[in-house]
């Protein structure tokens, strides 16, 4: 009976993942390996960026709006924020579908999202990355790693650590069913600062982590150390988010750019 419960939980979480996220690893890999009829538009310099802005991301950049005359770095930063806000919205819906999450104290739900969404976002971002670049605009564009590196500082420091993490993370060859459980485990984490009902969340976390462990053994029988490797990735993601939050604070201080109110809420008093 316990195994049946675990399988049900794994299935519920996987279904919630497929339902709530616009992009997933299977979709991203199909595009990145050239198996789609129309390949993504490659953004590799200022000219191709402008072309992409006129077509793919016109809505995001607001081509007729306030950002039209701003420098490329600011426009790209704004696009990153739009994508982050969308993913946070998707992650919130996903979290609500994880059994037990919605019955938690509302303050604890807020805390789990505040600390979990960026870790989850960077774990999932790896699915859309390869060593040369990143899928953007729902997979219709591909922005190269070299172009992102060539931007002026501090914007050039934004994505490179995510690529470095992604290359190591992608080497683990997780599929969407593994990622669904991994993302759920990131969100339902009992040691976030300020949690009220720690015991309740720890129980949830324990069942998700147990399901993840069994799922990995069944889904990757040749990689017996995959589970401990993934636990290490949780620590790496925490570090990645800490550094990212510091960089965003620096950009906010030194650059004339706005930060979306939702992201401001998340970053405020984070670490």
């Amino acid at each position: 009976p316990q195994l049946a419960d675990q399988k049900t939980l794994a299935k519920q979480i996987y279904e919630a993942y497929l339902k709530n996220f616009n992009m997933n690893k299977a979709k991203a890999r199909t595009i990145l390996t050239g198996k789609t009829s129309t390949p993504p538009f490659v953004i590799h310099d200022m000219e191709t960026l402008q072309l992409a802005e006129q077509t793919l991301v016109a809505k995001m950049v607001g081509s007729a709006g306030a950002l039209k005359d701003r420098e490329a770095e600011v426009r790209i930063f704004h696009c990153c924020q739009c994508t982050s806000v969308e993913t946070v919205t998707e992650l919130t819906e996903f979290a609500k579908s994880v059994p037990g999450f919605s019955s938690l104290d509302l303050n604890d739900q807020v805390t789990l999202l505040k600390y979990g969404v960026y870790e989850a976002l960077f774990a999932m971002l790896a699915s859309s990355m390869n060593k040369d670049g990143l899928l953007v605009a729902y997979g219709s564009g591909f922005i190269t790693r070299e172009f992102l590196k060539s931007l002026r500082r501090p914007f050039s420091d934004m994505m490179e650590p995510k690529f470095q993490f992604a290359m190591k993370f992608n080497a683990l060859e997780l599929d969407d069913s593994d990622l669904a459980l991994f993302v759920a485990a990131i969100i339902c984490c009992g040691d976030r600062p300020g949690l009220v009902n720690v015991a309740h969340i720890e129980r949830m976390q324990e069942s998700i982590v147990q399901v993840l462990q069994h799922h990995l053994l069944a889904n990757h029988p040749d990689d017996t150390f995959l589970f401990p490797k993934l636990l290490q990735k949780l620590a790496d993601l925490r570090q990645l988010v800490t550094e990212h939050a510091q960089l965003v604070q620096e950009i906010k201080k030194t650059e004339d750019t706005s930060l979306h109110p939702l992201l401001q809420e998340i970053y405020r008093d984070m670490y």
Binding site: T92, E93, N107, L113, H260, P261, L262, E265
Partner: peptide, 21 residues
Amino acid sequence: LKEKHKILHQLLQNSTSPVDL
């Protein structure tokens, strides 16, 4: 905490909520 995280709180309470920049 809810007061400091009004949008997160709103996202948690509503089924779908467009968050415009």
